[in-house]
């Protein structure tokens, strides 16, 4: 892990991600709103790995959703590749996700009735690549994550660790600039978790993709270049 650096990270101009002044509150059942976070600033450079920790319910996953354009901040700005995410219309946000972002989830989310290759190829197709090239690249990416020659297999026959490998392949197949990972090792045993984490970080760094990981795991946090802690008052170095 690198020595502590300010939460703002690298200069905005060279950042893959630059978010400033993010504020988000959620409605309460009886009326009114509860503030999740405010004044959040974060920037990631290409190839940088940043972990976000914090108590349950503090809004870590919500922060990821805001960055990905799946949720709107109450205030603040998110720039991905220089584009203001909140200012984009919904179809443009979808296109941005397809081309510039990769996702790894705790629950893998591999579609059960698509083959492994087709699962991995989805982001390429949504980004506009033709089917043959997308599937070829998917097979190649599966090989890079240790699943060579298994593009035709169905997800039902895979273990949890293998499913997460598929998810990692899907997150990186289209060469995104930023990978968002929400508890990527949450459903794995410690040994498998370690291997998966190493794989994710190595593949991302090979592609100069920045990785933003939300995690409770100290092991994951320790593998990051920077660790930030989210609380109601903002995002600060852990």
């Amino acid at each position: 892990m690198r020595p502590d650096t300010p939460s703002a990270g690298p200069a905005v101009a060279t950042s893959v991600l630059a978010a400033t002044g993010l504020v988000r509150a959620v409605p309460l059942a009886g009326g009114g709103r509860r503030s999740l976070f405010s004044g959040v600033n974060i920037a990631l450079a290409p190839g940088e790995v940043v972990a976000i920790t914090g108590e349950s319910g503090v809004g870590k996953s919500t922060l990821l959703n805001v960055i990905a354009g799946l949720d709107a901040p109450d205030a603040g700005e998110v720039l991905i590749g220089g584009k203001n995410v909140a200012a984009l219309a919904e179809p443009d946000r979808a296109r941005l996700r397809a081309s510039a972002l990769g996702f790894v989830f705790q629950a893998f989310h591999v579609l059960p009735h698509l083959s492994l290759a087709r699962n991995v190829a989805l982001p390429c197709l949504l980004a506009g690549m033709n089917a043959a090239d997308a599937l070829a690249r998917a097979e190649a990416t599966l090989a890079e994550v240790g699943l060579a020659g298994r593009g035709g297999d169905w997800p039902a026959v895979l273990s949890g660790g293998e499913l997460q490998r598929v998810a990692i392949a899907r997150a990186l197949v289209h060469r995104p600039g930023l990978v968002l990972a929400d508890e990527p090792t949450g459903n794995l045993d410690p040994e498998t978790a370690g291997r998966i984490l190493d794989l994710l970080l190595a593949q991302a760094r090979d592609r100069q993709a920045a990785v933003l990981i939300v995690t409770h795991s100290e092991m994951v946090a320790a593998a990051a270049d920077r660790v930030l802690r989210l609380s109601a008052s903002g995002l600060v170095p852990a």
């Binding site: 979808a94 989805l122 982001p123 899907r170």
Partner: peptide
């Protein structure tokens, strides 16, 4: 619903 959510996250617009 989770499948559709995944496609949306990966970049399929609502209209799609």
């Amino acid at each position: 619903r989770p499948q559709f959510a995944l496609l949306s996250v990966l970049g399929l617009p609502q209209a799609g």
